[in-house]
């Protein structure tokens, strides 16, 4: 496949940034989207140009580190799929693909496609935890949890899932209503292999 990429380049938070066009040839449909970017970067490095910075780590759809706007969609066109699990067979030969960082004031651009997502960590630090200091836990079987709650995909698990079954969780429906299908919900930092957007 031969593709034309239009990629957001921005040297740092203070730089204005702009879209830059790069042709990429000989893309295999079996490549992941990030492997396609690797090919581009290898070429840029050898040409003495600055490679495109993008975040990624596990490349198996679980760590939540990658995150690109691809043709205007968070993580691209395939629903429930992170950018690292998106494969080029989802695109057509000759296509032009726009690649941008997430754009939200909560996620300031660090460089190119890399954004700062520490806002989520701050929310968790402010109280997004269960207080269970090490060593203080009771025997695991002292708190049964309804199977329906335990089985619910993490993206649809009610906040009460960890509440013992003998408390209101038992009377609560197994799943809360599906999450809204706005693009922002697909940026959920709690990435999940079985991402199941609405």
């Amino acid at each position: 496949m031969n593709l034309t990429l239009r990629i957001w380049r921005q040297k740092g938070p203070e730089d204005k940034g702009r879209m830059v066009t790069y042709p990429v040839d000989d893309v295999s449909p079996d490549m992941s989207f990030l492997e396609m970017l690797d090919v581009l970067n290898e070429r840029l490095i050898l040409a003495g140009e600055d490679p495109v910075a993008f975040d990624h780590d596990c490349r198996e759809g679980i760590c939540g580190m990658c995150g690109l706007m691809i043709n205007g969609d968070a993580h691209g066109p395939q629903r429930g799929t992170t950018a690292c699990q998106l494969h080029m067979r989802q695109f057509k030969d000759g296509e032009t693909i726009d690649i941008e960082p997430w754009r939200a004031s909560a996620f300031p651009v660090v460089k190119d496609l890399v954004v700062n997502r520490n806002a989520f960590d701050k929310i968790i630090a402010a109280g997004g935890y269960i207080t269970a200091p090490t060593g203080s836990a009771p025997e695991a079987h002292s708190t049964p949890v309804a199977k329906a709650n335990a089985d619910a995909p993490s993206s649809r698990r009610p906040a009460s899932a960890a509440v013992p079954a003998w408390r209101p969780a038992r009377t609560a429906p197994a799943c809360s209503s599906p999450p809204p299908s706005s693009p922002s919900s697909r940026c959920c930092p709690r990435a999940s292999r079985s991402v199941t957007p609405g």
Partner: peptide, 21 residues
């Protein structure tokens, strides 16, 4: 002890019908 600790933290381990692990 690890299982006890993680259950207390709310780790959603798979459960049997009766709610046990």
């Amino acid at each position: 002890n690890i299982i006890d600790q993680c259950v207390a933290q709310g780790v959603p381990f798979a459960r049997e019908y009766g709610g046990l692990l």
